[in-house]
């Protein structure tokens, strides 16, 4: 694995250059909230965060995406697709969020259902990750073979060590970017920093406080759709809001509808949808496959812990802990995993 070194003092220069050469998307702070936005230079970036309030999945699956504009011309309909994706860099995403993008890839880039909107952005975007320097009490990425300094899915991974960034070059795409800014990416001292990074990863691995063990959970869910567990408190306390799904880096459901802008013109949009909503997958004839909160809550956790595994052999959760932090009533996926494990053991 190749590695480079970037002086922290040179980061603003790098970001300014990237913003000039690419669409640069990076974490920004708006009042108390940290989220990912297109920035115009280093001054806009906010890197002193541990876990952003909203994940960067919107880089590839925006909350609102125009798929085409339409105009009715009297005897036909004219369809205009938006321009293809711009060259972009996603900078400063955390390892859990990047791993989450790798769980979206098979959904949108599968052989059967390729999605040009997603893959266009994916192909044209270089992902530069930023290792965590802290572990929150709600973090549990380790449970899914991730880690605070794990580079899975990133093209380059920056790890802050003293006044330098140790940069792992994980893909050809990453290498090309590092080579293009070779005056900033040096190779001096990389060996020592590699050891320091290992130390940091080891230290952070010991800081997780949530014990999450998935043993037996998938097998239990495979054989028990109607588990009495789902009649418990979680479905009673769930308010049915979409917070967990919208802050989740792996949730990817969307709704498609037309948005008229005049009598004969409009756009076809796809926008995030949430399985917590009562109209989610509501049939035209009025049938609702998930009529109450019980089925909706069950669906969300079945999707994370079973369906995504069935389809793509990947757990649909990366342990970012956002839903745990943001749920208004403290529904906690780590508790659910551990409860299910117990149910499986007692079965």
């Amino acid at each position: 694995m190749e590695a480079r070194v970037v002086n922290k003092g040179q980061l603003p220069e790098l970001l300014d250059k990237l913003a000039k050469d690419y669409d640069l998307i990076a974490p920004v702070q708006e009042e108390t909230v940290v989220l990912f936005r297109k920035i115009s230079g280093a001054a806009d970036a906010f890197l002193e965060y541990t876990n952003s309030d909203v994940s960067p999945k919107g880089c590839f699956l925006p909350q609102n995406e125009k798929t085409f504009n339409y105009t009715y011309t009297g005897d036909s309909i004219e369809i205009n697709k938006p321009e293809g994706a711009q060259k972009a860099v996603l900078f400063g995403a955390r390892p859990c969020d990047i791993k989450a993008i790798t769980t979206l890839d098979p959904v949108f880039e599968g052989e059967k259902f390729g999605d040009e909107y997603y893959s266009g952005k994916r192909e044209n975007t270089v992902i530069i990750g930023l290792s965590c320097t802290k572990v929150l009490s709600t973090c549990f990425c380790y449970a899914f073979e991730g880690g605070p300094c794990d580079g899975t899915g990133s093209d380059l991974l920056f790890t802050e060590i003293g006044d330098k960034y140790y940069v792992e070059v994980n893909t050809e795409k990453g290498k090309a970017l590092a080579d293009a800014y070779s005056q900033i990416f040096s190779s001096q001292g990389a060996e020592q920093l590699a050891k320091d990074k290992e130390e940091l990863a080891k230290k952070l691995a010991g800081e997780f406080v949530r014990k999450v063990d998935l043993t037996g959970v998938k097998e239990l869910l495979d054989n028990n759709f109607e588990l009495p567990y789902w009649n418990g408190d979680d479905q009673k306390k769930c308010l049915g809001c979409g917070t967990c799904t919208y802050v989740c880096p792996t949730c990817h459901c969307f709704d498609i509808f037309d948005y008229p802008t005049g009598d004969f013109t409009g756009a076809r949009l796809r926008c995030w949808d949430s399985c917590m909503y009562p109209e989610y997958t509501l049939m035209a004839g009025g049938h609702n496959p998930r009529p109450t909160r019980k089925e909706r809550v069950r669906n969300r956790f079945m999707h994370k812990l079973k369906y995504h595994l069935d389809r793509y052999n990947m757990v649909g959760c990366v342990g970012c802990g956002r839903c745990v932090r943001k749920c208004p009533v403290n529904i906690d996926i780590t508790k659910i995993i551990n409860d299910l494990k117990e149910v499986a053991q007692n079965a």
Binding site: E30, V33, L35, V54, Q63, L239, G240, C241, G242, T243, T245, Y246, V247, S274, Y277, P328
Partner: peptide, 16 residues
């Protein structure tokens, strides 16, 4: 405008 433009429309405010 600044506040509302951030809204995700998760409807937590309504549902709570």
């Amino acid at each position: 405008d600044k506040q509302f433009s951030r809204c995700l429309r998760c409807y937590a405010c309504r549902n709570v």
